[in-house]
């Protein structure tokens, strides 16, 4: 049944339908509706909702629940996600599946509660200490908030890794109709959980390896997993890319706004298309290379000072990629993107 929900609520309901039964978190705007929703709903299905004393406590509760085999999640916004980084690094090393939601707001520091995409680097480069990545998915509609919450649990359990849903204040607060996907992700085999070792040998969930050779072997194992994710788990979408001379690259809310700009520019006769990475890590470099073939100019648009644009430039060595961004909680308008695009065309497409 089609229903209308806020993005934050859609993630919460989808996570529950996907079998998540544990939530540990600490309130922060603009993700509060997500917690509020689960505080009401999780107990109805026999789940556990716990507002922890801090973000640090919450992420370590996630570690504990995941280690014991529970399907578990947490959510926060930039300042809270910073506090969780120690735990996220531990989860990555201990290979514990879970969903972490970051509804981004403007930073650095406490910044503002208004929307931003300033945590792209933090999310896609690991964020905590040590050599690790985690899959990062970026929804661009309320429907995708739900779809990608399912996908996140599936990836988390298949690859034994924390997965992040990276979204922002606009996506979290806006309402749109959606349908919930039918089949919840099948639980992965959990032959590693620490749920009591009566009648079987002891298992260990840990991140401390005092022998450098052991730790290097563990790191090599993690790196193989990251390679596998890079090879098979990229997601992206193009819009009006056929015959485009200018390709705009944008994710999340910016991709929505850019879509309006593309429609308006196309109506004026400008050949403009859009490439939208859905998985931010692994970055869909090969798909972008395909989409950029035959395109004369590229313009990355973000709500930050230029973060994803570095991945775009790495995917397209030697190509000139322009950038337009706003910061501090200011959201880009379609009019602004159109003006930037016209500048590119006026300058002669390079």
């Amino acid at each position: 049944m089609r229903q209308m929900m806020k993005g934050n609520e859609a993630i919460a309901e989808a996570a529950m339908r996907a079998g998540c039964r544990f939530f540990f978190g600490y309130p922060i705007t603009p993700q509060t509706e997500l917690m509020e929703y689960l505080a009401r709903r999780l107990p109805e299905v026999g789940g556990t909702f716990l507002q922890a004393e801090s973000e640090v406590a919450a992420i370590n509760m996630v570690y504990g629940a995941a280690g014991a085999g529970g399907r578990v999640m947490t959510s926060s916004s930039g300042p809270g996600i910073c506090l969780k980084q120690e735990g996220i690094s531990f989860l990555a090393s201990a290979e514990l599946p879970c969903l972490i939601v970051n509804v981004m707001r403007g930073g650095p520091g406490l910044g503002t509660i208004q929307p931003s995409q300033g945590d792209y680097f933090q999310a896609t480069r690991g964020g905590g200490n040590g050599d690790y990545y985690l899959p990062v998915l970026s929804p661009s509609s309320v429907q995708e908030m739900a779809d990608l919450a399912y996908k996140a649990f599936e990836l988390a359990e298949r690859y034994r890794t924390p997965v992040m849903l990276l979204t922002d204040g606009v996506m979290g607060q806006m309402m749109e109709p959606l349908d919930f996907p039918d089949s919840p992700p099948v639980p992965g085999e959990k032959s590693w959980i620490t749920d009591g070792c009566k009648n079987r040998s002891r298992r260990l969930v840990k991140t401390l390896y005092l022998d450098p050779a052991d730790l290097e072997a563990h790191n090599r194992h993690l790196q193989e997993k990251f390679e596998q994710l890079r090879a098979s788990e990229t997601m992206s979408e193009t819009y009006a890319a056929d015959g485009a001379e200018l390709l705009i690259v944008a994710f999340g809310i910016c991709a929505r706004v850019a879509r309006t700009a593309v429609d308006n520019l196309r109506a004026e006769g400008f050949p403009v298309g859009l490439f939208r990475p859905i998985s931010l890590w692994p970055f869909p470099a090969a798909s972008l290379q395909n989409a950029a073939e035959g395109v004369k100019s590229l313009l990355a648009v973000e709500l930050n000072a230029g973060q994803m644009v570095e991945d775009v430039r790495m995917a397209l060595p030697g190509r000139k990629v322009d950038f337009y961004g706003r910061m501090g909680g200011v959201v880009i308008s379609a009019t602004e993107i159109e003006a930037e695009a016209r500048k590119v065309f006026a300058g002669g497409v390079s």
């Binding site: 089609r2 209308m4 603009p30 806006m174 309402m175």
Partner: peptide, 23 residues
């Protein structure tokens, strides 16, 4: 606004509802 958006949904339109939010 939400009731208007719901009416749009009932008519199978694409709809979005975006609030201002703040303190």
């Amino acid at each position: 606004g939400q009731i208007l958006a719901l009416a749009g949904m009932i008519e199978n339109r694409n709809v979005t509802w975006m609030p201002s939010y703040g303190p």
